[in-house]
């Protein structure tokens, strides 16, 4: 069953004098529980495609249907709520809230979702323990290493049990050991929770473990291979 489907998705940036086509008519579908990577050279449109699938960017043409929802039909406010309820994001630069502790960062989205305090505290602790940070619950991001911060970011994305995780270059700033640990953890979540993972990456350590590789070139799908 397809949970993500894009049809002739196109994105043109015309903010500068010259219009740039970042994504050019991409039609793709992903099934529930996939662990897929978008690969390709810098500027090939990986992040833009992920942003459109995650409801962060509006396509210039085409549609992105995520779950049963056609994102182009949602208002800006509905898109925020859609992301809150359905999508977990992991970013290259971690992007944790610097004034919150690890636990508070993980709790934040669940809090926005309206989860009762007791339940979200328990869930945050459970997920942080699962990512190996059970002893750093009250540490602030500045007190954590890059690998630990990214694990908090993953925990933040996973804790609300989203339908999809969109991860944009999640291992770009991590060493081999941290990358391995993070991938092990995400694969385990993927297997156990059937969460769909969609990555953009240049990192071979990630692509080697992905079950599907979509290669983009100049905003178009150049290759789509399943393993």
């Amino acid at each position: 069953m397809n949970v993500i489907e894009t049809k002739d998705l196109k994105k043109v940036y015309d903010e500068s004098a010259v219009a740039v086509t970042a994504v050019d008519g991409v039609s793709l579908s992903f099934e529930k529980g996939e662990f897929a990577c978008l690969v390709g050279p810098s500027g090939c449109g990986k992040t833009t495609l992920l942003n459109m699938i995650g409801g962060l960017d509006e396509p210039t043409e085409g549609t992105a249907i995520v779950g049963d929802v056609d994102l182009s039909e949602l208002s800006s406010r509905e898109l925020v709520d859609f992301r809150l309820r359905n999508v977990g994001f992991v970013f290259q630069a971690y992007n944790l809230i610097p004034v919150f502790t690890a636990r508070e960062n993980v709790e934040f989205i669940m809090h926005m979702q309206g989860m009762p305090e007791k339940e979200r505290k328990r869930r945050a602790e459970e997920v942080l323990t699962a990512v190996g940070l059970g002893d750093r619950l009250d540490a602030r991001p500045s007190e954590l290493s890059g690998g630990q911060q990214q694990r908090v970011a993953v925990a933040r994305a996973l804790a609300p049990k989203p339908k999809f995780i969109i991860a944009d270059e999640p291992t770009a700033n991590l060493d081999s050991k941290s990358t391995g640990a993070l991938l092990d953890m995400m694969l385990e979540m993927n297997r156990e929770e059937k969460i769909t993972f969609l990555f953009s990456t240049h990192d071979r350590r990630v692509t080697e473990r992905a079950r599907r590789l979509v290669t983009l070139e100049d905003g178009k799908v150049a290759k789509d291979e399943r393993r």
């Binding site: 992301r83 809150l84 309820r85 994001f89 809230i97 926005m112």
Partner: peptide
């Protein structure tokens, strides 16, 4: 600005 972008991206309403 970037941090604001992230917060809105993860589901924080702009009003909040």
């Amino acid at each position: 600005r970037k941090e604001f972008g992230v917060m809105v991206a993860v589901g924080l309403r702009k009003g909040k």
